[in-house]
């Protein structure tokens, strides 16, 4: 399946990436990250243009996020009605509406498996559309830049580029946890004085 999709990249380039990132943001099992790595390689080889490739991938991802957001916004209240006796979902959606920006940003690229569900939650929580869209564009921009950039740097060597992506994401993920724990520790130490 992946090999078949990869073969479509040099032929249908930007359209292919638009469809792949759109569908992957709708939680469909499309290997969009691998396709972007390959597309980066084709950019390095001169077979595809960087501008059209990156902008198509970004446009597809942002459109997918919007589709998920609106699905949550239009259908979310109905789905929650009568099933949230403990009020947990209501509280979760309230938190999402108030402080969801960072969650939207990080689930575009660092914890991307959660992305489609955060879109639905953001819509159901009636997170302001402008704020959701801003963080969605920033997050998807990071995702596209990381993968197309690595594919370009590693000239389509998917194994080397994937390994590098894991290292970079691992560093950023563990680094974020370390910074968060450091902050909590600092506050706890100050409070203890």
């Amino acid at each position: 399946m992946t090999e078949w999709l990869l073969a479509l990249v040099p032929t249908y380039g930007p359209w292919m990436l638009f469809a792949a990132t759109f569908l992957s943001c709708m939680a469909l099992p499309i290997p969009a990250s691998i396709l972007m790595l390959a597309a980066g390689g084709f950019v390095a080889a001169g077979d595809l243009s960087l501008l059209s490739t990156a902008s198509a991938a970004l446009a597809g991802a942002v459109a997918g996020d919007q589709a998920g957001y609106w699905a949550g916004r239009l259908g979310g209240a109905g789905l929650l009605r009568g099933r949230d006796k403990a009020g947990l979902l209501v509280r979760a959606t309230q938190m999402m509406a108030q402080k969801g920006g960072l969650a939207v940003y990080l689930t575009r690229w660092l914890f991307s498996a959660l992305g489609p569900y955060v879109n639905l939650a953001g819509g159901a929580a009636r997170m302001p559309l402008a704020r959701f869209t801003l963080w969605s564009v920033l997050g998807e921009g990071t995702w596209v830049a990381l993968y197309v950039g690595l594919g370009r740097a590693f000239a389509g060597n998917l194994e080397a580029a994937s390994a590098q992506a894991v290292s970079i994401l691992g560093f950023l993920g563990a680094g974020a946890v370390a910074v968060g724990l450091g902050y909590v520790l600092l506050r706890a130490m100050r409070a203890g004085r």
């Binding site: 090999e3 990869l6 073969a7 990249v9 040099p10 390959a38 390689g41 084709f42 390095a44 080889a45 001169g46 077979d47 740097a153 590693f154 000239a155 389509g156 060597n157 998917l158 194994e159 080397a160």
Partner: peptide
């Protein structure tokens, strides 16, 4: 990376990508 540049040649690649 520089010392271990070429990856395997695959059916989905173009000659341009192999050359790169």
């Amino acid at each position: 990376w520089e010392g271990n540049r070429p990856g395997p040649v695959r059916p989905w690649m173009t000659v341009g990508l192999v050359a790169e």
